[in-house]
Write a protein that binds this DNA or RNA. Sequence first.
DNA 1: GCTTCCATGTAAGAGGTTACATGATTGG
DNA 2: CCAATCATGTAACCTCTTACATGGAAGC
Lengths: 189, 189
Amino acid sequence: MALRHAVLAALLDGEYSGYQLAKAFDVGVANFWHALPQQLYAELAKLEREGLVSGRQIVQETRPNKRLFRVTDAGLAELERFAADAPRPSFMRDDLVVKVQAVDGVADPAPVIEQLLERARVAEAKTELFIGLLGRLRGPLDEAEFLARGERVGPYLTCLGGIGFERAYLEWCHRVVALLRAREEARRG
Amino acid sequence: MALRHAVLAALLDGEYSGYQLAKAFDVGVANFWHALPQQLYAELAKLEREGLVSGRQIVQETRPNKRLFRVTDAGLAELERFAADAPRPSFMRDDLVVKVQAVDGVADPAPVIEQLLERARVAEAKTELFIGLLGRLRGPLDEAEFLARGERVGPYLTCLGGIGFERAYLEWCHRVVALLRAREEARRG
DNA sequence: GCTTCCATGTAAGAGGTTACATGATTGG
DNA sequence: CCAATCATGTAACCTCTTACATGGAAGC
């Protein structure tokens, strides 16, 4: 039951439609939570029924109509309650890590190496994206200034976390690839 | 459908019971996948029905009987197939990150700071655990030697990844805590 | 005596993924 | 002309979590 809180947290930035949220929670982008569009539409409907968000219809002519949502006072109270709750520990569940764990049980490590390289490219792309986002968040201020006196530092901090995570992942990918290649050469040569 | 592959990967090390696997996939330890005991018992039963693992009963006198499982040839083939499959991207889903994202929407950041400090302690404890595990995995060899010529480097590599991840998380926790505290002081003073 | 460890499950419910459905508009 | 973007959902399915159940042995 934390998707609801992720949605509420995202809506602290302003009004968004399900579609816009879906992009923010997308596979390639999501710096603090991931969810599919279907989940978001369902969750928004539920949150609205419970009075934690309120939506208003925007009639558009050249495009489909949309509904913009904002957090209600009850929603803010729910977030406050959530923040004070004991967090459930977060879990590692990553296909690629399982493949590396199993890498010396399989005959051919080549596909794993390929996937590590692809994941490294993804990490680099995400990092650049995040760095751009940091710049937009902090506006004209420099980082120290923004962090000390900016109004909304939450997204900035999670973005910094995302960069740190991606850099750690990138380094690991490179290290594992170098090692698997060295072992392959040793085996053949 | 990746829990099955995580189980197969874990069983590459030798024969284990559901109970032993449950400890390895436990909340506090799990360095490459997390799962609850119930999931593992169910998954092992399923894997056995499908012939990917085979179990043998160990009758014990002072303790309950147990079943030890090992990977079959069909299981190895399944792992091989899995390793070559396109990986599904791994997702960020972490309560604590959501709380930080929302931290400037809530009145009192104190509980979030407390949780970040606790998470930092967990990261340190896990890191020590992982370092101990590395030592046991590499045995008498030094790291370079083991990585170059050791037989089973998969678990070593995922453990290195776990250490890198925990260190990144730890640094982020410290940074966020320092910042939130500075802002609290500025707000009050 | 109380807790923890060993050892294995069942059942119900919450949460997440995959597949499907619709339809105009904008860009290459 | 084909693909992507905008915009919102439903339905079926799979996975994961929570709660419950059992019972002896070893340690404090």
